[in-house]
Amino acid sequence: MRLEARLAALAAAGETLHYGALARDLGLRMGELTAALESLMEEDAAQGRPFRAAVLSQRLSPDHLPAPGFFQKAAELGADVSDPAAFTADQRRRLAQCS
């Protein structure tokens, strides 16, 4: 299953997945996954869509939030990430509605 399809399936199911698990599932190195996710975020921002990468979470995050790099990239793309939990919840809600 391709990255985009896997993220869409997670969003539709209202689920999250850890970065490492997704990398293993897709046979990617972490650096490859990160680069692909950043590219998707750029595409999402250009199209005015919610960030598909929001369905991923850090392995040790008690709140199931994405990694800091997600928020850094989102901010670079013009998103207000001053409240990471609220931003993530909004992105995930919007993704579920699009599915």
Rank of each mutant, 00 (worst) to 15 (best):
M1T: 12
M30S: 10
Y19N: 05
A53E: 00
R29N: 06
G69H: 00
A89S: 15
A21P: 01
A74P: 04
S57D: 01
A89F: 05
Q47D: 10
E32Q: 10
R93K: 13
D90H: 11
L17N: 05
D83E: 13
L40S: 03
R92I: 09
R24L: 11
Q47R: 09
M30F: 11
H64V: 06
L40I: 06
A85R: 15
G14N: 10
A75M: 05
A54C: 08
F51T: 02
A5P: 01
L10K: 04
E15A: 15
G27L: 08
V81T: 15
E38S: 07
A53D: 01
T34W: 04
M1Q: 12
P50Y: 03
Q47N: 08
E42T: 13
F71C: 01
E43A: 14
L95S: 06
L60C: 13
R94C: 06
A13N: 13
C98Q: 13
D83M: 06
A13F: 06
G69N: 04
E43W: 07
V81L: 03
A45N: 06
D83H: 13
G14Q: 08
L56T: 08
R6T: 11
E15C: 07
A53H: 02
A53I: 01
D25W: 05
L22T: 01
R93I: 00
G31D: 11
P50R: 05
L26H: 02
D25M: 08
R49K: 09
D63I: 04
A54S: 12
K73A: 09
V81I: 14
R93D: 14
E76F: 04
A8I: 04
F70Y: 15
R92S: 08
L22A: 01
A23H: 07
L7K: 00
L22C: 02
A53L: 04
G14T: 08
S99Y: 04
P50D: 04
D90E: 15
E76A: 13
A9E: 15
A8T: 09
A8S: 15
M41E: 05
L40K: 02
G14P: 03
S82Y: 07
D80M: 09
L95M: 10
T34M: 10
Y19W: 10
L60Q: 12
R24S: 12
R59A: 13
T88H: 05
T88V: 11
G31N: 11
L10S: 02
A75K: 14
H18P: 03
L65S: 07
T88M: 09
L22I: 02
E4T: 13
P66R: 06
Q72W: 10
P68G: 13
Q97D: 14
G31L: 08
R52K: 11
A96M: 12
L65E: 11
A86S: 15
M41F: 00
R2S: 15
T34L: 11
